[in-house]
Design a binder for these strands. Structure first.
Lengths: 167, 167
DNA sequence: ATCCGATGCTTCGAATTCGAAGCAATATGT
DNA sequence: ACATATTGCTTCGAATTCGAAGCATCGGAT
């Protein structure tokens, strides 16, 4: 246990610090824009955006939760909220009675369309403005790489349900 | 209003998506480790870590809040919590009666020392493991650049106090 | 010396978040 | 077919988060 006190190189440290900082600042900026323009939280926007991309504007709750890296209970809460605002509908899946299918409504698409330009603008301004094309490409490559790595190995974002070996 | 629908290039989109995903996943992983090992939230850890770096283990509330990109009220809450656990102390600044100086205690340092190795390990595993040395360097450079850009221009993280033009 | 805006922090209430526990439907093994 | 584990979602309670409002102090102008 005392054999290997793990270390980060100065470069790694710098990368980690700057990464978390950018992530925080960017998120705050984006959240503000979404709140101001569409009265959406970041999560809500992410959910709508995912649905907008999905075929038929529909996805299962679990897939949505995994997609945005979010707890299932939190998703239930937000889905309810979005449903009350008429931006999505929820219905049990015909194929699997357990599943709930969330579907983007026309209203939802409208709101999405309304906030989208400003969102893009914010991302452009805050994240990309100071970067060269090569930087962006590099960033895309590296982040995709890490993301794949993260998605691959560990017990998925939400509740890993297995549990029997410990205790 | 309809003149310039801003766009992100496919590369930018990929970079943005992967970036937010990595940021979420990494954060979750790190949070779990901190919770398990030291019963610390991410924010609490960041606060302790900042204090650990600061000369004398002390910082003003506002500087801490800016440092971790956090609301002032949230910081008050967490500082209270950390004080109750004996990990920090709070005292009014001698120089400026308004300011509260937060100081890391020996207990605080112990907890920090206890969680640190696992934290580093987690960051190494989840963020850097799949990256080459050049990738890391690049990441550090780009993130530092963006961070500087973000810190520079906008009304700072927390409450921009001005308010007079709108109603 | 004194007024007034700016600054630093806290309190307050509302909204959001999570994990644990619970319930229903499905899959799997025999 | 039937028991058992697994999966999908929701409910519950507790903890965290934020922004607005409030209070005290400071700085700079008169």
């Amino acid at each position: 246990m005392s054999t290997r006190p793990p270390q980060l190189s100065p470069t790694e440290l710098a990368a980690y610090f700057a990464f978390t900082e950018v992530s925080s600042l960017l998120r705050h900026a984006v959240e503000k824009q979404l709140r101001d323009v569409g009265k959406l939280s970041y999560v809500q926007f992410q959910l709508l955006a995912r649905l907008g991309d999905a075929p038929g504007g529909s996805q299962r709750m679990t897939d949505l939760a995994d997609g945005v890296v979010y707890s299932r209970s939190g998703l239930t809460y937000q889905a309810q909220s979005l449903e009350e605002r008429g931006l999505v509908t929820r219905q049990p899946s015909p194929e699997d009675e357990r599943s709930t299918i969330v579907t983007l409504t026309d209203s939802g698409r409208e709101v999405l369309a309304k906030v989208f330009p400003g969102h893009i603008e914010a991302v452009k301004t805050h994240l990309f403005e100071s970067l060269s094309a090569e930087d962006v490409e590099m960033l895309a490559r590296v982040m995709t790489q890490v993301s794949g790595h993260l998605r691959a190995e560990p017990p998925r974002s939400a509740a890993p349900r297995r549990r029997s070996s410990d205790h």
